[in-house]
Amino acid sequence: MTTLKSKLHDDLTDAIKARDELRSSTLRLTLAAITKEEVAGKEARELSDDEVQKVIAKEAKKRREAAEAFTQGGRTEQAERERQEGELLDAYLPKQMSDDELNAVVAQAVEEARTAGAEGPRAMGAVMKIVNPKVAGKAEGGRVAAAVKKLLAG
């Protein structure tokens, strides 16, 4: 069974052979982030696919935020490159939930939390605890929190 990390390595090799600069530099940076994560802490270790996915998600999010910042700063060329790198990384992640799917999960969690007696602003934490494991890797934290807030306010 190939791991996600070895797939990234194989894709990097292919990208280098194909002289695909965007892919190879993006994958190089991502693999460096994974290695950095592996040697962080007291003992070096091999990351699981889930942990590798979290690193990739974090890298993809950085690219989206950078693209946003470059766009606001009027630097469209850099923004476009960051956007392309983000999309490239998204391909290694589970398909993101649509807003409708996310709202359905959140609505169910709000019901569960209310049944358990969580009301008002305090319900936010209770709902997030129910929602997060169900959407892990399929929706960004910011999106999830926004959906929860909207439904709790509504």
Rank of each mutant, 00 (worst) to 15 (best):
131 V>I: 00
45 R>H: 08
90 D>A: 07
150 K>P: 06
52 V>I: 10
66 A>W: 13
139 A>R: 04
147 A>G: 01
52 V>T: 08
117 G>A: 09
126 A>D: 12
61 K>H: 10
132 N>T: 13
96 Q>G: 15
81 R>Y: 09
117 G>I: 07
151 L>D: 07
120 G>R: 08
43 E>Y: 10
42 K>D: 15
90 D>Y: 12
79 A>M: 03
18 A>S: 06
35 T>M: 15
92 Y>Q: 03
63 R>H: 11
151 L>Y: 03
14 D>Y: 13
14 D>R: 07
130 I>E: 03
49 D>K: 09
89 L>G: 08
38 E>W: 07
57 A>R: 09
36 K>N: 10
31 L>S: 01
79 A>C: 03
147 A>L: 06
99 D>A: 06
51 E>P: 12
54 K>L: 15
78 Q>L: 03
126 A>G: 02
13 T>K: 11
92 Y>M: 11
127 V>L: 09
18 A>T: 06
52 V>G: 04
90 D>Q: 07
122 R>C: 10
79 A>H: 00
137 G>Y: 13
104 A>P: 02
153 A>C: 04
49 D>N: 15
142 G>N: 15
134 K>P: 02
27 L>A: 01
75 R>D: 09
113 A>S: 02
19 R>A: 02
67 A>M: 00
74 G>H: 00
59 E>A: 15
88 L>Y: 02
120 G>M: 09
24 S>G: 02
141 G>V: 14
139 A>Q: 08
31 L>R: 03
139 A>N: 10
49 D>W: 11
109 A>E: 04
18 A>E: 03
49 D>V: 09
35 T>L: 13
144 V>F: 04
87 E>H: 05
152 L>W: 01
116 A>V: 10
25 S>Q: 13
75 R>I: 06
111 E>M: 12
147 A>E: 00
152 L>A: 07
45 R>P: 03
47 L>K: 02
100 D>H: 11
16 I>E: 15
20 D>K: 00
106 V>G: 00
106 V>W: 01
116 A>H: 05
112 E>R: 07
69 A>H: 09
132 N>M: 14
46 E>V: 14
85 E>R: 04
13 T>Y: 10
116 A>R: 13
58 K>W: 11
20 D>I: 03
13 T>D: 15
